[in-house]
């Protein structure tokens, strides 16, 4: 059952990303192009998603547990550390460069445009390389 919810949620998430325009790199880069022809409309996206989820999340967490699992598994880290900031900087540089972030990259592979395959393939390699190096924990 949990898997079915995840499958449907993933499908819905893809619909949302596509309708918004996140699967079109020039729209995303237009949003980030504050010093050029700034296209501010993507703010509406985050606004819509946050408006819904910030309300529903409060009601959901009043429950003792989620419907299909024993407990909620929310992020527990609280500290704003070097890893968080450095990670966000590295991610943001890549995001702006291509105009693609992880979700839209995966969804847009269906377009058949090779750009998304380059992006997602390289993203998976980046994740794997990070995981292999991070076991040594230097930061």
């Amino acid at each position: 059952m949990k898997g079915l919810v995840a499958l449907v949620s993933g499908f819905l998430f893809a619909m949302g990303l596509g309708i918004i325009g996140m699967t079109q790199p020039h729209i995303v880069r237009g949003f980030l192009d504050v010093f050029g022809a700034w296209d501010w409309r993507l703010i509406g996206v985050m606004g819509g998603a946050i408006a819904v989820h910030s309300i529903t999340y409060r009601f959901i967490l009043k429950r003792p547990s989620p419907i299909l699992d024993a407990k909620f598994q929310l992020p527990t880290k609280k500290d704003i550390d070097t890893r968080l900031i450095l990670g966000a900087i590295i991610f943001g540089l890549g995001w702006g460069w291509a105009g693609i972030c992880p979700g839209p990259g995966i969804v847009a592979m269906a377009s058949g445009d090779i750009a998304f395959l380059y992006f997602v393939g390289s993203m998976l390699i980046g994740m794997k390389v990070f995981q292999l190096l991070d076991t040594k924990r230097s930061l």
């Binding site: 992020p75 880290k77 890893r83 968080l84 900031i85 450095l86 990670g87 966000a88 900087i89 590295i90 991610f91 943001g92 540089l93 890549g94 995001w95 460069w97 291509a98 693609i100 972030c101 992880p102 979700g103 990259g105 750009a115 998304f116 380059y118 992006f119 997602v120 393939g121 390289s122 993203m123 998976l124 390699i125 980046g126 994740m127 794997k128 390389v129 990070f130 995981q131 991070d134 930061l139």
Partner: peptide, 19 residues
């Protein structure tokens, strides 16, 4: 796209999250 994808992969795991 290759460079950007790599940065996104490393950055999102280091920073524990994306968009």
């Amino acid at each position: 796209y290759v460079v950007a994808g790599f940065l996104v992969g490393v950055g999102t795991l280091l920073g524990n999250g994306c968009t």
